[in-house]
Design a protein around this nucleic acid. Structure first.
Lengths: 152, 152
DNA sequence: TTAAGAATAGAAAATTTTTCCGAATATGAA
DNA sequence: TTCATATTCGGAAAAATTTTCTATTCTTAA
């Protein structure tokens, strides 16, 4: 699907604030409300926009501690990989998990309350998974930037 | 601010799909529309909900390549740190940047089109920043999980 | 138990989304 | 170029949702 300049403008706005009304957007783009509406529907239909979500303030829900955890598996058979991936996906503390190149196999972004909660997570959840080799945790001291908006 | 079970339910729904109407939520929670409305407004006012955004499908906007880039600064004076943080924040390819413990000072999540674009990003943007010591790039082979929903 | 404040429900008002349809514009083949 | 087709657009009406308002119910502390 090809996106013209107006589509990109719409996406930029909605990435920043999805509560903007079609009317507000239409004013910014010098288009009619209907034109904006149809374009957004098309972007949703075509899967350019995948979903609309509310973002929470982690501090306010007692999840102020972010940890990047790198994991090495013992073996790399397809079976082990998919098993690990299924299990890690089911862990709510894990917001992100990527299969990566380099010394470790996976990198996880984990959100918990504090160091004690992270220890609990490691001991009772992560290391109980089968076939885990070694892990390395990198603790975040400060969140410098954290956006969901892709540059267009 | 203390959140009761109904607040948490509302947050869970809105984290998954912020287009849910107050009516739909009110049915799920066995509350009136107004009650749901007032609770959401309070959650917004108190900063529990920080914003509403549209999430895009990276493939569809030609940003299918995710790289984790770890960075070491040459010096760690406050001035150098804040200068680096300001500059890195302004880079649209960088979705996330955390100041971290461990061997490296920062970990960045970078979104670009492909390897060539990443090289371009490295050469023309990252390494031109002052006071950068060494960097290490970890390329993602597959996105296993990537959610914005904090477990409540 | 009672009074004050907060939360709730229902109805009305305001706003927004969605549909509908004709007009304008763009696209592509002859 | 010209025509036919399809796409996009704009405005109005309809439908749905949000927001406000008011009265009632529920909590909680005195």
């Amino acid at each position: 699907m090809k996106l013209d300049e107006k589509d990109l403008q719409i996406l930029k706005h909605l990435q920043r604030d999805s509560k903007m009304t079609n009317k507000e957007i239409s004013v910014k783009l010098a288009l009619s409300i209907t034109a904006v509406y149809e374009r957004i529907k098309r972007l949703e239909r075509e899967g350019v926009i995948s979903k609309y979500v509310a973002l929470l303030n982690p501090d306010r829900v007692d999840k102020a501690f972010t940890v990047f955890c790198q994991i090495k598996l013992i073996q790399h058979t397809k079976d082990y990989l998919t098993r690990f991936e299924t299990e890690v996906t089911s862990l709510p503390e894990v917001l992100e998990c990527f299969h990566v190149s380099g010394e470790y196999d996976y990198i996880l972004k984990v959100l918990v309350k504090d160091m004690a909660a992270y220890r609990e997570f490691m001991v009772t959840k992560l290391t109980t998974l089968d076939h885990i080799g070694s892990t390395q945790s990198t603790f975040t001291i400060e969140k410098v930037k954290n956006t969901t908006a892709i540059s267009l």
